[in-house]
Design a protein around this nucleic acid. Structure first.
Lengths: 132, 132
DNA sequence: TAGTTAAAAGATAATAATTTTCTTTTAAGT
DNA sequence: ACTTAAAAGAAAATTATTATCTTTTAACTA
């Protein structure tokens, strides 16, 4: 995955910190601020939490990344890809991408109401087999 | 709507504050903490914000109410009803219930993965006709 | 390739949101 | 009415997020 291109396409300056954030986000699939901060500090020991928040916000604004929030679970961030659903265990926190095409459904809903879609989120939250 | 029964069914004590919260939530359809606090103070001028949070959390735990969070918009709370989608304008904040049956889709996803469902949320976020 | 500039990083302080603690009050069951 | 556990209210504490300011750096240009 070409993170430099991703940033460039979104008119964001390429910085080592941003590349590190995107790399970690990509490896994890989806990651919370806490986890991200703990991991990124291994590469940039003096990185500021403020920097992390500012970058997350900048990348959210351009939709380069996406926030996913499920009940009982801290928000997680992921690099935007084709819309998909999330299955979340609220006991152990397991977070799974589900390749279900939510775009069709979303378009039907939005069109019926004259809306333009910017984001669609389908989150199924429950208990995974291990936690039952 | 019988709020006393709702509370009783969920083993929560019936208090005037809780009845007020449920009433406002029902009238609004979905409401943020801020709005709720502003409104509930008209009835209970000395109600504490801590009380509001504690009650929201208690009612969330029993699933008597549900939290709905869309990008750029503060979390909103609603009395749990049959699962439905939400359409949100992130410009003016308009929040619309959509009577689309998301349960079927959710069950398919959950069953395929051995999950038990506790909650399903489909949020389509975009720009409403007025804000375009 | 150095020079310029606007943006980003980092440090810290400030603000906002949420939770905790403690005391007083009250709902609900004898 | 009496008892008890839970809820309310007030205030403080904690946590999350944002803002401010100075220093550093990416990106562009001469």
């Amino acid at each position: 995955m070409n993170y430099e291109l991703l940033l460039k396409e979104n008119n964001l300056k390429i910085t080592p910190q941003r590349l590190g954030i995107l790399q970690l986000m990509h490896e994890a699939g989806h990651i919370s601020i806490e986890e991200l901060f703990a991991s990124i500090k291994k590469q940039f020991s003096s990185i500021s939490l403020a920097t992390l928040y500012k970058n997350i916000n900048a990348m959210l604004e351009t939709s380069l990344i996406k926030e996913v929030k499920a009940p009982d679970i801290k928000a997680r961030y992921e690099i935007s890809k084709t819309p998909h659903a999330h299955l979340v265990c609220h006991v152990c926190g397991e977070f799974k991408d589900i390749h279900f095409d939510i775009a069709r459904v979303a378009h039907t809903i939005a069109d019926d109401n004259g809306y333009t879609i910017d984001d669609t989120s389908l989150i199924v939250s429950g208990i995974c087999p291990k936690c039952q």
